[in-house]
Amino acid sequence: MASGGAAGPGLAFELSVPFPTSLLAWTALGSLGPDPEPRKGGILKELDVTENVLHARWRADEARILRVSISSFLDHLSLVVETMDLFGPVA
């Protein structure tokens, strides 16, 4: 899932988040994937899942824009995980 406009070769960041099961990793992708980056251009974010791991990759022109996107992603990710802890399948 790609969002935002084309970003130059500038900065890159990668994150891998393991979940207890593949289903939960796909659920996280389904929750975090639909919203496009609020800013048009200057940042490119991709999410995908392999087995039980959610991968997030960023490319951005400026560190400031990259930081904002990563930080908001982490806020939403932790909310997804908290929601799974409360309402998800009992491990």
């Binding site: 975090l32 909310l79 997804v80």
Partner: peptide, 13 residues
């Protein structure tokens, strides 16, 4: 977005 993220998560769970 905050609210949508939780709604999507519980809908899937």
């Amino acid at each position: 977005v905050t609210v949508a993220v939780v709604a999507r998560t519980v809908a899937q769970l």
